[in-house]
Write a protein that binds this DNA or RNA. Structure first.
Lengths: 301, 301
DNA sequence: CTGTTAGCGCTTTCAA
DNA sequence: TTGAAAGCGCTAACAG
């Protein structure tokens, strides 16, 4: 049998017995280390629970996402974890959920679809971070990166603004700059910000890679993060943990989010757990060198 | 039909007609940006050719790799692209190839299995880089990072050594340090190197992340890459292109490698192309700021 | 051109 | 305990 190169035909098997151990992971952007880390975390849990996770990258393309989801269903996936593309419509997800296939949506909240959600407390996290910066004495605090009018960024900007208001600080719209959520984006946005006469003394960045890009822009001008400008990133991926100087972050617990998403899906597949038990991951500040007070700000030209 | 949520059952279909459009991608480490980029490139080509790529991460686990390969075969994948784990045995691959399923091995050469290979010219690339460093006047050149006795690193070290020999330079084994192929690894290795009395004036790093880690270690001590120490990375991932100061690299053309691997597989699936047409991707130096001469070396304490 | 049927590989059920 | 047979959803081949 083995000598002849026999391969079990799972297609035929699932014809008889439609329950399969495949689980589909549909990831919007594997080139983003945050999603790559998330995917790896999810995969680990699924695998150790005896499932076979198959992954597909949608590159933020809604069409590609639809193709991939269809394909996975055709192959008998018994559940899906989806990190939806930016332009995903609630109806698409609702339709899937209506069919009855177990789904979990991760990271990006899709409003209006009755689907289990695993997201982080973006508003709260940004609030914590901005609060801390205000507490350190910063008066001009910027928010840098992310595309305007996308759910996660809106939440983070909202939390940021709330904290500033609560601290009695004015919100300068010129200090809230959108930019692609990449290193280049962060670099360019910070560079622009530094050209302004009334530059900020602290910056909350949309995510870690934006923060690292921003720190490069600082370095270019001899501005030392943590001494001359406080920088906080968001997400706390390994990207952040490897940065130099070590980056203060709002951790969204990417491992934890992945684990929750996987476990939620498994419970749904195995019939336990309700349809709409969303989970909100906690965020916490991880303070590292990049986050200083305003003491020495004036030393910088 | 659509209203009832009908889903085409591809398992049943491939029972009748065993040719499928699924292609499996088995990737050793998706948390490594090099492999993530490669995977995304491969995926793009496969997708635009009408195939459905399913990806799985093996996390450098040979057991996991075997599971994943089996699972993909069971699901009727019509071909596989494998970036093998470090400890993959040639026999495993030979067995697969013997079965007749189209396979392409990427990046890591597996000796002894008659399988199409897409790898880069690691020896040649390292040679070019070391040659350039020698030409710039460096006498003490280090090679940093990667695990000893792994194929790719051995090739790179060999090319490095060849160039040094050709330039009439002594090869100091203490300047060839192995370390995990990560930022932390690069940081620690460079940090150790800098403690030595006769520190190198130039360093070729196993890959981009090692190089970035190494540059952090330099920065920590006020040593400016490109001015006080020449640094060259390997691979030229976006990681390198985003570094600050911009990192000189030996580009292995990750996009090109992915494209070749995908196209080779497609040709094999479609019956064209021979079993053992390996391809060696060209490497070329991409010179950016981190690669300077030895002029100012003595200014550094 | 439309409609029927056999059989792909597997599992489950039922018979010996 | 072992063996035979039916049928899952699909497609290719063939009949009407």
């Amino acid at each position: 049998m083995r000598e002849l190169g026999y391969v079990y035909n799972r297609g035929a098997a699932s014809l008889r017995n439609p329950q399969s151990r495949i689980v589909g992971m549909v990831i919007n952007d594997l080139s983003n280390p945050f999603f790559a880390e998330l995917a790896i975390g999810i995969e680990r849990v699924l695998r150790t629970s005896g499932y076979i996770p198959f992954m597909a990258n949608t590159s933020e393309s809604r069409i590609r996402q639809a193709e991939v989801v269809r394909s996975m269903r055709e192959h008998g996936a018994s559940g899906l974890i989806i990190c939806p593309t930016l332009d995903t419509d609630a109806k698409e997800i609702a339709a899937l959920a209506g069919i009855g296939i177990p789904i979990v949506i991760a990271i990006r909240r899709i409003e209006g679809a009755k689907v289990p959600l695993v997201v982080s407390d973006n508003r709260g996290g940004a609030e914590q971070a901005a609060q801390r910066l205000a507490m350190l004495g910063h008066k001009r605090i910027a928010f840098v990166g992310g595309f305007a009018n996308t759910g996660i960024r809106d939440d983070r900007v909202e939390g940021f603004s709330n904290a500033l208001r609560a601290a009695g600080l004015a919100i300068d719209p010129l200090l809230i700059v959108d930019a692609p959520p990449t290193k280049d984006g962060g670099f360019a946005a910070m560079d622009t910000l530094l050209d302004r006469p009334d530059r900020p003394t602290a910056t909350l960045c949309f995510n870690d890679v934006v923060a690292i890009g921003a720190m490069y822009a600082l370095g270019r001008r001899g501005i030392v993060p943590g001494r001359d400008m406080a920088v906080i990133g968001f997400d706390d991926t390994t990207e952040a943990r490897h940065a130099s100087p070590p980056l203060t972050t709002v951790s969204v617990g990417v491992d934890d989010l992945g684990q929750r998403a996987a476990q939620l899906l498994l419970r749904r597949i195995e019939g336990r757990g309700s349809t709409a038990e969303s989970q909100i991951g906690e965020t916490r500040l991880v303070i590292r060198e990049s986050c200083g007070g305003t003491r020495t700000i004036k030393e910088v030209a």
